[in-house]
Amino acid sequence: MKLLFHMGSHKTGTTSLQNYLSEIAPQLSETGILYPRPKTEMPPHSILLSGLMPEDELPRIVRFSGSEDQRKARKTRALEVLRNLAQRSPEATLLLSSEEFFTPIPEQGLSTFKQELMDAGISSFSFIAYLRRPSAFYVSWLQQVLKASFLPPKIAPPPYEEIFTPYLKVFGEKAVQLRLYPEVWPQGDDTVQDFFREVLGREDLAQNRAGRPKVNQSLSAESIALMQSYRFAFLREQQDRYTSDSRSLGGALTRLETETETTKIQLKQNIAKYIDLDIEALLWVRDHLSFVAPDVDYSHLEKTAEALETPSDLRELIDIEPEAYRALAQKLLAQGWANSARLESRLAFGLDPKSRRRRMWLKDQIQHGYAPPNISATNI
């Protein structure tokens, strides 16, 4: 059996692609392409990453999905599913997808993964990833990180060499294919259409997708600033972890943005240039993976300046409109978000000090606007 593994990257239409692949899995199987549909809240096939790298380096969505023993048992069951598929359809192509594999995985870990796949009956391996403009990737990653932390990610391009070198060593120099993320470097379509046309050769199966709602919509600059402020005020001890109330806040902000004039997140020009024109990253993916970034004059690339310090003050990274920030906070207060039953405390507002604190926090945002986290602070 042949393996085709879609490994993301993050924020390149991956969820839309996974949702559609799951939806039409029966039609795909008729063409000899098998896409297993695990019954799990995790992104498809991410459990396969468990055990391939140190526990504290696992992506949060894998790390917090259960104990080490629970993940081991789930992975064993997942590999058994793959083994059964290979036995029933040895000539088919197995299609897997998990953006969690777009991360630096130790060479030894990938060697273990290759052996696990071979033991399941897979003998041929191909990996495909979509890349977007590095500064655009950072903007999306900034949003993703601040939903589970109050500290912005390090200002840097994606660590392409650390991610892909182990794949090339373990699976071979021809095992990895990179494609442009079409929604950022426009090619007239989206990731789903591009994947079905250029990777699977079945563009006909990606028709009739008009009117589908977008998933994982981006938040505005003001919303993500409110999220950062909230996580610092109430979730400081739960770094790198999604919580029910931060998810609830994200949902409320997404709804309120439709009636508020907010600002699309855009990096400061000097930071975007620093990330996009990192000569080492650009030359590495060009020379090792034949990936040439559009609109880049390689003949005039210069050595990247000294590393930029990553600020906790989002105003040094992006533009935040003060009035839009206050307006969102006001609407959150008006709609009673702070008393939502989805929050971890189920007590009535009048008896719940945490709920009162949320309302006090919102009133403070309305009055004073955004303030960067005081990293040295120890008390809320």
Rank of each mutant, 00 (worst) to 15 (best):
L3N: 07
T15E: 10
S16F: 07
S22Q: 12
I24R: 05
I24E: 09
T31H: 15
E41N: 14
S46F: 08
L49G: 06
P54E: 09
E55N: 11
L58D: 02
R60G: 12
V62C: 09
D69V: 10
D69M: 09
Q70E: 15
R71N: 07
L79P: 00
R88F: 10
S89V: 07
A92N: 05
L95F: 09
P104I: 12
I105V: 15
P106I: 10
P106F: 10
K114D: 07
L117K: 08
A120E: 07
S124L: 08
W141R: 11
L142A: 02
S149D: 15
E161T: 05
P166C: 08
K169N: 14
F171E: 02
Q177N: 10
R179K: 15
R179G: 01
W185L: 07
D189H: 12
F195L: 07
F196H: 04
R202W: 02
R202N: 05
N216M: 10
Q217F: 08
S220T: 12
A221K: 09
S223H: 06
A225L: 08
Q228W: 06
Y230S: 02
Q239C: 04
D245K: 00
G251D: 14
L253H: 05
L267W: 04
Q269T: 15
N270P: 00
K273I: 09
Y274A: 04
Y274C: 06
A281V: 00
V285K: 03
D295G: 00
Y298C: 03
A305C: 06
L308K: 13
D313Y: 13
L314G: 00
P322N: 04
A324L: 08
Y325S: 05
Q330H: 11
L332C: 05
W337T: 05
A338W: 14
E344W: 15
L351M: 11
D352W: 11
P353Y: 00
P353D: 02
L362D: 00
K363G: 03
K363T: 00
I366F: 10
H368N: 14
G369P: 02
Y370R: 11
N379H: 13
